[in-house]
Design a protein around this nucleic acid. Structure first.
Lengths: 348, 348
DNA sequence: ATTAGCACTCTTTCGATTCGAGTGCTAACA
DNA sequence: TGTTAGCACTCGAATCGAAAGAGTGCTAAT
């Protein structure tokens, strides 16, 4: 549709306006453009075109006698155009990202930092959320006279421990029996499949040790719970202070608060993950974002996939005048970078 | 020394100045005091006293013809006086704090939140740092055809898992043998005690499975590493926006950044923990804090002790005109609250 | 179709002025 | 001798208006 509304010259001018505004953060006037663009046009001509562009809703004036700034619609067009351009060849900050970290958690924290440093925007990375997940292995071991530790391994090697207090030490045979029981009954099951009936049967077979079974199942249930309040790592929140249009007290406070409490970021992640077109990059401009706090920002997100149903989101929050090109490029790199952890992990 | 320098009336006036400033955040003038205090003095008299107090360095004028505000020295005296006052009876927000959370981590996060909500300042809680710590229990279990999980339990029930990849499944006997070997050799040892010689001996005995031993020891070493970049939970960082004297762009950015990156907070924690008088409450006013970012703030910290050498810090960062009384009271409550987790934990 | 020119609008900046809060000092008073 | 009233003085904060500057829209000329 854009192609219909805009001839080449209008598009060039719009593009120039946006790029100029991205750099300076100031409304851009006709004279400026007249000098900066290569199509030699006088300011007057440009004014006319700008008036048209304003009528079409791509730009607007913050007040009479100010220059023009891009509207959400303008940004949208710009981004859509960017999207179409041929796949950016991936850079090689690969080495930077994966510097000898064995734990996924650390990789993600690191990713957020790299991203923030690289883009000068605020960034977030969500830990992978595991939907359809299955139990892989359960083991009880005596630790102390009165403590037993339960180790629960899920698909994707998510591990959870729980210390269980017992009145008296369990004999070796008992432990063996319980371990056998738990594993034969539960292995390969997804969390949804564990029914009350099943639990009752388990407890019955455990006889006098049904309390231990309860505790183990509690721990299993906890895993779901942990998924619910999802882990999100952030970095560079203070970058927003670099952009005057976001750094007045009111906005700054709201955004930073969102980054601190993370609740809203979680919503953002959920939204991204549940979105249709999943392995691409999504751009929310202003009101498009599912979180009202971000109405003055743009949010760019990408989904990564570690395999086995483990997916997460990386995102960048910044001013609408964001360097979309750079951001999308970087995000794509990081995304594919994280995707490869998957293969590395499952092979190694 | 204060007692020598200040007669009762001067102290009363100083105290009045401070308290008034704490409430309003505005410099306080002589007329205001003349009306608000109960010792009936004219503004002129008070002016004289104030001039004296200023000479002594307890208060100062931000500019001529403004009221007076407390200097760091003034705050210091005030806080010292507060300290001396009889132990505050502990409130009972006990129930609030410990709402059924089994994992220490969650308790601490919760604590930070409660604290922030309760005081309207920025808060931090550091996870317990475990100095002299000993191995309690190690267990290897086969998870998959090519994966083994190692569970390591330390004193204080810190647990760590590590997935170890193996070429081929270990037989049951091998596992049993390795477990036996690890436990008999390492149990009860502190991390410092594990020498290279010991490791060599272990590997020798493990024969063809020495790689597994290596990996386990790596995991053990990792625990130390985790301690190093210590976990710190924060909450209410945006509260600083409530205090104009901290919320100009420059300061806000610095402080919030400190809260985000946490490096500086870690220094603060280290300082607190290593301080002499340990189980009390420490107050850093302005420059006294070991972190330069906080030079316009006051920092109040308390150390909690979970037993077995596990200590951590809870802290509050706010403007110098902090409600010290309330803060110290709240902090003390929380501190003793966390201390009791200890007993609860080790008994239950 | 493009451009030069001009009047117009609106924001920003700057200085001048005013206002008010608060002080320091002096002199009077108890 | 300690307290107070009074007054001149200082300095920041708020208010106002004028001027500057940036940018537009429109018209008329090219």
């Amino acid at each position: 549709m854009a192609g219909i509304e805009l001839d080449a010259r209008k598009y060039t001018i719009l593009r120039a306006i946006i790029q100029n505004y991205l750099e300076t953060g100031e409304p851009v006037g006709s004279r400026t453009l007249s000098k900066s663009t290569d199509l030699n046009l006088s300011s007057a001509t440009i004014r006319n075109e700008m008036a048209d562009l304003e009528d079409l809703g791509y730009i607007f004036q913050p007040h009479t006698s100010a220059g023009r700034i891009p509207s959400d619609k303008g940004y949208r067009l710009y981004v859509d155009m960017l999207m179409q351009e041929k796949e950016q060849e991936l850079e090689e900050l690969k080495s930077v990202v994966l510097e000898k970290t064995d734990r996924v958690e650390k990789v993600l924290k690191q990713a957020a930092k790299v991203l923030a440093a690289n883009t000068n925007y605020a960034t977030m990375v969500s830990a992978p959320v595991n939907r359809r997940n299955t139990l892989k292995f359960i083991q009880l071991s005596q630790v102390d006279a009165d403590q037993v530790v339960a180790v629960i391994v899920m698909g994707g090697n998510v591990i959870k421990n729980k210390i269980i207090d017992v009145e008296e030490p369990l004999s070796n045979e008992t432990l063996l029996k319980l371990n056998m029981l738990l594993n034969t009954t539960l292995n390969g099951m997804s969390i949804e499949e564990i029914s009350l009936g099943l639990i009752a049967r388990l407890k019955e077979q455990a006889g006098s040790h049904s309390k231990v079974i309860s505790d183990v199942l509690d721990a299993v249930a906890d895993i779901i719970h942990i998924e619910e309040d999802m882990e999100i790592y952030t970095s560079g929140a203070t970058n927003i202070f670099k952009y005057p249009e976001l750094s007045d007290k009111q906005s700054a406070q709201e955004i930073i608060h969102a980054f601190e409490e993370k609740q809203q970021l979680a919503e953002l992640v959920t939204e991204t993950l549940s979105s249709e077109e999943n392995h691409g990059i999504q751009v929310y401009i202003g009101d498009e974002a599912p979180v009202k706090t971000m109405r003055d920002c743009s949010v760019v997100t990408a989904t990564y996939d570690l395999g086995e149903g483990m997916k997460g989101t990386i995102g960048i929050i910044g001013p609408k005048r964001m360097d979309y090109e750079h951001v999308m490029k970087t995000l794509k790199t990081l995304q594919s970078e994280l995707d490869t952890i998957n293969h590395k992990n499952s092979k190694e």
